[in-house]
């Protein structure tokens, strides 16, 4: 296993390290997915989806801000870390693609996030209060993704074909979600089983085929959590961070 790059300067040390690691992992997931959804603004297929996608993005951004603030200064962490220091899953950084691609990414992630936050909320760890609030938002996100998976899968031949392509293409990024994160007290194998059951049920109802291939490759297992990202992520960060970096020390 490669050594993770050093944590940000303001991250706490000692006993708090595990908590910081977990806050960055969950916070980066929410931050990066929120950003990707922001790229849809003005481009959605119907106005109702402009509202829905922005709504989901805003929820995720809210979660990211709370989590990153736990680990340090939210803006320094979002705008001044480089690619290798981001701890998000590779799944959430995947480009939007077409609407089916975005919806399947949402389906995979929101199902995971819902199970994860439900378990965190039920525990007494440091993330329980946040998870308690997030789980309400995420259940809406999951419902939105499931409804659209059904519409697109069980819609026209063209929409089914596109959705199946997205289901297959994103499948190999889903295994990474169940790599244990330091600082989170979670029964990961049980979470994975529950995720697979739910996803299988939704895909079948949507008349789609559950992919048979592996859910991780040798190159993707746990990579995002270690700061190893796919190529489009650097460009995403360049856009996100450009203005902040151009005015060092400015407040906005």
């Amino acid at each position: 296993m490669t050594t993770p790059p050093s944590a940000p300067a303001q991250a706490a040390s000692g006993d708090d390290t595990a908590r910081t690691t977990a806050a960055l992992a969950l916070g980066d997931d929410a931050l990066v997915l929120s950003h990707r959804l922001g790229e849809w603004a003005g481009n959605a297929p119907v106005l109702e989806e402009e509202v829905a996608l922005a709504n989901i993005a805003l929820d995720l951004l809210g979660q990211a801000r709370v989590l990153l603030s736990t680990a340090g200064d939210e803006d320094e962490l979002a705008f001044l870390r480089e690619e290798r220091a981001f701890r998000n899953l590779q799944l959430v950084e995947q480009p939007n693609g077409d609407f089916a691609h975005t919806i399947v990414r949402q389906l995979y992630f929101s199902t995971y996030q819902h199970l994860l936050h439900t378990e965190l909320a039920a525990g007494d760890g440091p993330f329980a209060p946040l998870a308690g609030k997030a789980v309400k938002e995420v259940s809406y996100h999951r419902d939105h993704a499931e409804q659209w998976t059904l519409r697109l899968g069980d819609g026209t031949d063209a929409s089914r074909a596109r959705t199946q392509r997205a289901v297959d293409a994103l499948w190999r990024y889903t295994g990474e979600m169940f790599q244990p994160v330091e600082g989170l007290d979670i029964d990961w194998p049980a979470l994975e089983t529950a995720w697979l059951e739910r996803i299988t049920q939704v895909l079948r109802r949507a008349t789609l085929t559950v992919p048979g291939g592996p859910r991780t490759g040798a190159w993707t297992a746990g990579a995002g959590r270690q700061g190893l990202h796919t190529e489009s992520f650097g460009r995403m960060l360049a856009e996100m961070q450009h203005l902040h970096r151009s005015h060092p020390g400015a407040t906005w």
Partner: peptide, 29 residues
């Protein structure tokens, strides 16, 4: 939504980004 939506992905702080998201969402509404 377009001229302001341009800046959602480049907003220089997370607070401004949240405000912009909310505004563009309101405009669609």
């Amino acid at each position: 939504m377009q001229p302001e939506g341009e800046w959602i992905t480049r907003a220089p702080s997370l607070r401004r980004k949240a405000i912009l998201f909310a505004k563009v969402q309101d405009e669609a509404g």
